[in-house]
């Protein structure tokens, strides 16, 4: 069941990524048409309306992507019914926070929880816990994937909650570093693993 759930989550992620891409194509085409009519259209109300319309179109999909990102995190720790229950609980509490305090705190709650769970996942991966479930095998691939996802969650968290904060850029660079390290570790896990083994053999 977990395997199918992962597959569905991946399909949904692909669908949302492509859908946001299509909206961006629409936005660029619209900008192009506007600039053909008036070179200074970015100084007009039409531009303000364009930005608002793009926000309206992109926001639901971005929120859906954030929810998927948040829901993807517990799947490392839980499986079967426990996974579904934890996902449902996370979603219900997030919706409750959205309804009570607004969209930003709701998304913030979901992301904060995801950051915490992801930090636990990284800790468990580092100590070699057998309880974790990954679609992929290998220590470097797993830790890379975990760090990459932590970086992505932190990145979104930074833009949702810290965009006006003095820590915005600091957190931005931390998330950039995590994303970069995570990608290198997960994309080149085989090579890194081989290097580590060779080093281990040489030293011991």
């Amino acid at each position: 069941m977990t395997k199918n759930l992962n597959y569905i989550l991946i399909l949904l992620t692909i669908f949302i990524l492509v859908a946001i891409g299509v909206i961006f194509v629409y936005g660029s085409t619209y900008s192009w048409l506007q600039s053909l009519q008036s070179a200074s259209w970015r100084q007009t109300v039409t531009y303000q309306n364009y930005v608002s319309d793009m926000n309206v179109a992109v926001l639901p999909l971005s929120v859906a992507l954030v929810i998927l990102l948040g829901l993807c995190v517990p799947k490392r720790i839980f499986s079967g019914m426990a996974l579904l229950q934890s996902m449902a609980a996370l979603l219900v509490v997030s919706i409750f926070v959205v309804l009570s305090f607004g969209l930003k705190p709701g998304i913030g709650f979901l992301l904060s929880t995801a950051v915490l769970i992801q930090a636990v996942v990284i800790g468990m991966t580092l100590v070699g816990s057998k309880r974790l479930s990954y679609e992929v095998n290998g220590f470097y691939l797993q830790i890379g994937s975990a760090i990459l996802h932590l970086g992505l969650i932190l990145f979104v968290f930074d833009f949702v909650l810290l965009s006006e904060s003095p820590f915005h850029l600091l957190v931005y660079w931390v998330s950039t570093a995590l994303i970069g390290i995570g990608m290198i570790l997960s994309f080149y896990s085989g090579e890194i693993s081989r290097l580590a083994q060779e080093r281990g053999k040489r030293s011991g």
Partner: peptide, 22 residues
């Protein structure tokens, strides 16, 4: 914000992300 070049660049990134997920 939503400049055409930035939109299209993000679209490219999103498509490659989708490719890697698929």
């Amino acid at each position: 914000w939503y400049d055409p070049k930035i939109n299209i660049t993000l679209m490219m990134w999103l498509l490659y992300s989708a490719y890697l997920h698929a």
